[in-house]
Each structure stands twice: as C-alpha cells, then as structure tokens.
C-alpha cells in the first residue's frame, strides 16, 4: 500500500502579499463584528451565571439562573406565545411572498408588475415603530379604519388588541404585512432564474400552470425557501419592537414573547443575569431549530 506524501505548498511572495491585502480589507469589518456581535454573546454567557443589576458588580451564582428558568410561569407563557407567533407568521409570510412573486413573474411582466413589486416592498422600508403606531390607530375598536370598514360591511367592531384571543394574531398580521415584501423580492429573483427551457419544455408537454408551479418552480426554489423559512423563524423568535409598541405584552400576558420578557427581566426587573440566561437559552433553541431544519432539508435533497 502506497501512501501519498503530503505536499505543503509554499506561498509565493505575491500570493502572500495578496492574502495580506485581502485580510487587511476584511479586518475592519471583522474586528467590528467581533466587538459588536460576538463579544456580547460571550459577555451574556458570563452574566448568565451571575446576579447583576448593572449598578453593582456581578456576583457569581453558578447555575441558579438556569435552574429558575424551568419554574418561571411568565417565561413559559412567553415561550408558548412565541411558538404560536412563529407558527402564524412564518408559514403565512412564506406562502404569501411565494405566491405573489410567482404571480408577478408569470403574469405581470410589464410596468404594472414592477409597480406592484414596489408597492409590496414599501412596508419593508418603513420603520417598525412607525408601522406599529399606524397599525395601532388602524386597529382602534372605535374609529379605527379597519373597524369602520367592518361596520360598513355590516359586521360588528372587533377589539383587535384588547382581547386575549385577538391580540397575538393582530400583532402577527403586522409582521406578515411587513415581512412579505422582503421575501417576495428574494423569491422573485429565484423565479426569474428558473431556466426558460425547462418551463418551455413543460408547456410543450402540456403541463398546466399549477403543475409547472408544483413540479418545476417549487423544487427549484427549495434552497430559497429554506433560507426564507430560516430567516423567518429566527426573526419571529426575536420579535420585540412590535409587541413593545402595540400591546406592551398585554392584555394580561397574552402577547409576552421571549424577546419581550428578556427585556422586562433585564431592564424593568433589573435582573440582567437572569435575562442573560434566558437569552442564551433562546440562542440555543434557535440553533437547534436551525440544525433540525437544515437536516430535514438535506435529507429531502
């Protein structure tokens, strides 16, 4: 049995210089990322083992914060709400953005199509807090435009944000409205990249538009769907701004989400150590979901 000796290639001075220049270009953003993205994760991990109110030095308490996670009723409710929120927003915004993208790509290849794309994209560029404020006004039980429209159609007014059963779906609806445009643009780019010869062959073979969508477009868009679902899950698990502005977690605790309780534990209760423990757990949960999801998609491939 012969072995292949490992050959260590020596870098030429030119290659080394190019590598150094490349590293120099990357260095500023790499350093900033390390400072602002990576370091806080390690700091949070450290604080999660401490009792810390930011006014006095942190005190090491070992796993106490983690032990208390499992008995915290508020956190359980928040986790439950967050899962519901993810289950409402992710499928809805994924399916909606896909359908709109396919419709515009296939049936509106004209200036109206580009106008539609722009209109659907507008919510993406509007600030989240501004969106939440406007939707709060639109949701008003008395005088809100949505209820006025419902009254005009002969329906009774709906208490969108003040009733437990309606509050979370109402907040999720705003997230869907805001996120669909972004994902639609990604899907649209994907649909435009579907090879025209494949589509034409399907048309020649007599495939209907639904069959073309189901057997050609959808499978080709699978990597994009994977990315959109991943981004959607990560974003939805971190929902904070909409809840803070629209409901303040209420009524009761019906719109408490994990990110919102991290905020309340840290800044209202001044329990930064405990909040860090919850944040680290949220990070682990998101990583786990991402891993399971990527395995699922890989298996399907």
């Amino acid at each position: 049995m012969s072995t292949v000796p490992s050959v260590k290639r020596k870098m030429s001075p030119r290659t080394r210089r190019q590598a150094l220049i490349g590293a120099g270009y990357i260095a500023p953003s790499f350093i900033l990322m390390m400072i602002f993205n990576v370091t806080p994760i390690f700091l949070s991990a450290y604080f999660s083992f401490t009792k810390y109110n930011m006014a006095s030095p942190p005190v090491w308490i070992g796993l106490d914060n983690y032990a208390r996670l499992f008995t915290n009723r508020v956190l359980t409710e928040a986790l439950n709400n967050t899962v519901w929120y993810v289950l409402i927003t992710v499928p809805a915004q994924t399916v909606l953005s896909l359908l709109i993208a396919v419709f515009i790509a296939e049936h509106m290849k004209n200036r109206y199509g580009s106008f539609m794309r722009s209109v659907i994209f507008i919510p993406v560029i509007v600030s989240l807090i501004a969106s939440a404020t406007v939707w709060n006004i639109m949701y008003q039980p008395k005088g809100g435009i949505i209820n006025q429209f419902l009254n005009f159609l002969g329906f009774e007014s709906v208490n969108f944000l003040g009733k437990k059963a309606n509050a979370l779906p109402s907040v999720a609806a705003v997230a869907i409205w805001k996120g669909t445009g972004y994902y639609m643009v990604i899907y649209y780019a994907g649909v435009m990249n579907v090879p025209s010869d494949v589509r034409e062959a399907a048309i020649v073979d007599g495939a209907s538009s639904i069959q073309r969508f189901w057997y050609i477009t959808l499978p080709i868009l699978k990597p994009i769907t994977y990315m959109i679902v991943t981004l959607g899950i990560i974003g939805s698990f971190q929902v904070f701004d909409l809840v803070y502005k629209m409901t303040g977690g209420g009524p009761g605790r019906s719109t408490y989400t994990v990110a919102y309780v991290i905020y309340t534990f840290a800044f209202q209760d001044k329990n930064y150590g405990y909040a860090s423990a919850v944040a680290i757990c949220l990070l682990i949960v998101i990583l786990l979901i991402h891993t399971v999801q990527s395995l699922f998609f890989k298996e399907k491939d």
Binding site: G249, G250, P251, G252, R253, T264, Q268, K270
Partner: peptide, 13 residues
Amino acid sequence: ASFEKELQANIQM
C-alpha cells in the same frame, strides 16, 4: 415599577 406592571398584568388576566 416592575411590581406594579406585574400586578396590572395579573389583574387584566
């Protein structure tokens, strides 16, 4: 402030 927020949420419930 935190106590009052918690009490308010529980009363709403």
